[in-house]
Amino acid sequence: MPVTPPLPFSEAVRRAVRAIPRGQVRSYAQVALYAGKPGAARGVGRELKTLEGVPWWRVIRSDGTLAPAVAPEQARRLKAEGVQVKRSGEHFRVQT
């Protein structure tokens, strides 16, 4: 049986993020795992900066917080999908 080579990391991240259902979130670490590169959470973050057409706002930090650089926009998009996001000063956290 022929072995299928792994997808390039950027394509694997694209597929993993596009598979996150509306109204749900995954951590950068979970996306890395689903993309076949456990431990590459930072790499997922780098890829999300360059990928277009993916619901990047559904990817959050493992502690539930949103990255400060995009937090207001990310919170707005998540709330529009029904995700509960709590704001405390300048910090945003997804409520589970």
Rank of each mutant, 00 (worst) to 15 (best):
P21D: 07
V3L: 12
A16E: 01
S10V: 03
R58Y: 08
A40D: 09
Q95I: 10
V83Q: 14
S88L: 09
A41G: 09
A69D: 05
M1I: 02
E81L: 07
R26I: 03
V85A: 11
E52H: 14
V25T: 15
A19W: 01
V85L: 05
S62R: 14
V17K: 12
G39N: 09
G23P: 01
A32G: 05
Y28P: 07
V83T: 13
F9Y: 10
V94T: 13
L51A: 07
F92L: 08
Q24Y: 02
V13K: 15
R46M: 00
V31F: 00
L48K: 12
Q74H: 14
A80M: 05
A32C: 10
T4P: 10
A67Q: 05
V17E: 04
L66E: 11
G53H: 05
E47W: 01
R26Q: 15
R77W: 09
P38L: 01
T65S: 11
V59Y: 00
E90L: 08
P38K: 02
P5K: 08
R42P: 04
S88Q: 13
V70K: 11
P2M: 07
R76P: 02
E73H: 09
P6M: 05
A80I: 05
G45W: 00
R26M: 04
E52D: 13
L66I: 02
K79T: 06
P38G: 11
Q95S: 12
T96E: 12
R18Q: 12
G45S: 04
V13Y: 11
H91L: 04
Q95V: 12
R61D: 05
R76S: 06
A29W: 04
A35T: 10
G53D: 06
L78V: 07
D63S: 05
R22Q: 08
V70C: 06
L7A: 14
I20P: 12
M1D: 10
Q30Y: 05
R26P: 09
V3F: 13
V70P: 00
T65V: 00
P72Q: 08
W57R: 06
A75Y: 06
G45V: 02
G64Q: 04
R42H: 07
G39Q: 12
